[in-house]
Design a binder for these strands. Structure first.
Lengths: 211, 211
DNA sequence: TAGATTGTTAATCGATTAACAATC
DNA sequence: TAGATTGTTAATCGATTAACAATC
């Protein structure tokens, strides 16, 4: 399996670039075009494609439509991805209202919260009691979950999800979650992202002053 | 300058581990202890420290307090980091209420929004008109900014920030922002994070079925 | 002193880039 | 055909790991 996160990010970048080429009326693109658009080398583009089993035509490049379709399939864009969200707090609500998901085929089908006041079955994305989570996942065969609950309950939510058959989790809780070997865990630690910015600003500032 | 994001993440992990060792009453730790706690090799720990100019004592390991202090300083934890937030929508509000910032010395000092209805100078973190952004940054010498506005206005906010002297940006808008060479940009693309999970779940699922 | 741990150098591993034969 | 582009192999680059001399 392709193990590196960067491959997937590049794949997604190629996809965005392809959309733009399509809009400009391109029927086919060369590895050079994509490389320029995404900011990588053309070797990288061809290497990536070869890795994912994508082939083009020598001299003819890649058909935009065909290539788009192949990348869509790799990224699971050829079908709607149903996702459950646990935690209807501030981050949970932001995700429920996040507009970049739906047009990309990602659908949060239900949210869950332990707080009775948050429960609401009438909203487009219903907010259900946390106790219903396991049954819901099993019944609807959901594979992807988002954890947006406080640190101290994140692991127990994770355990429930795995028990119910979830295969991949995006975790917003600032804690290292334990899964099993079959579970993909991706941590979105907002504090860490900001700390990264802070570190590099400080480091850059220091080298500058030294010059 | 240390260019790799992973170094900073590991540094932050060492820091968390150190806090736990401290709680357990450790006065000093060995590279082996830290390696176990963080899940890297002890070579890596020592290599990282050597890179950041951190030295220990042969045989004696590292003093927990001293080491913590050094890492704190590298990560800018020895002082409060003031940050401005632009965009008081769903994500913006989630960040305003994000509890993991303040105890780590990250303070959102003001938020800005273009929508009059969102303006509120009385809240602990005031929400001010977008027009005041540039003056505010300059007056308070803010170096770090968070962009949580819609895609179509993100670049113009970025431009204003740079104009005003911002040195680092955490960007939540799903778009590639252009800065200049002195500006650190870190993109927190939530959709991309979720797409990563989806990709690996699909890829893992396929290899499994093949077995 | 004997044993253990650092700090650094060398070896390995993995990812990116360059080069070029195949070929359209 | 001549020229251009792919797909892949080899070379390079960078990051991680192993090994070990220095030394506490």
């Amino acid at each position: 399996m392709i193990a590196n996160k960067n491959y997937v990010i590049r794949l997604s970048n190629y996809r965005n670039a392809l959309k733009r080429f399509k809009k400009l009326g391109f029927i086919r693109v060369f590895s050079d075009n994509l490389a320029d658009a995404v900011g990588v080398s053309s070797s990288q583009v061809r290497k990536d494609f070869s890795l994912f089993g994508i082939t083009g035509n020598k001299k003819g490049g890649y058909q935009v439509d065909e290539l788009t379709k192949k990348i869509d399939s790799l990224l699971g864009k050829d079908r709607v991805q149903s996702v459950v969200l646990v935690g209807a707090g501030k981050i949970g609500k932001a995700l429920i209202n996040y507009k970049a998901f739906e047009p990309e085929g990602i659908r949060i089908v239900a949210a869950f919260d332990i707080d009775e006041k948050e429960i609401n079955r009438k909203t487009p994305i219903p907010v259900l009691p946390l106790d219903d989570l396991e049954v819901y996942i099993k019944k609807n065969k959901i594979e992807i979950g988002i954890i947006a609950v406080p640190e101290n309950v994140a692991q127990s939510v994770m355990d429930t999800m795995i028990e119910a058959g979830i295969k991949g989790v995006l975790n917003f809780a600032p804690i290292h979650l334990r899964g099993n070997d079959d579970t993909v865990i991706n941590n979105a630690n907002l504090r860490l992202e900001l700390e990264n910015v802070i570190y590099f600003v400080n480091a850059l500032g220091k080298t500058k002053r030294k010059r």
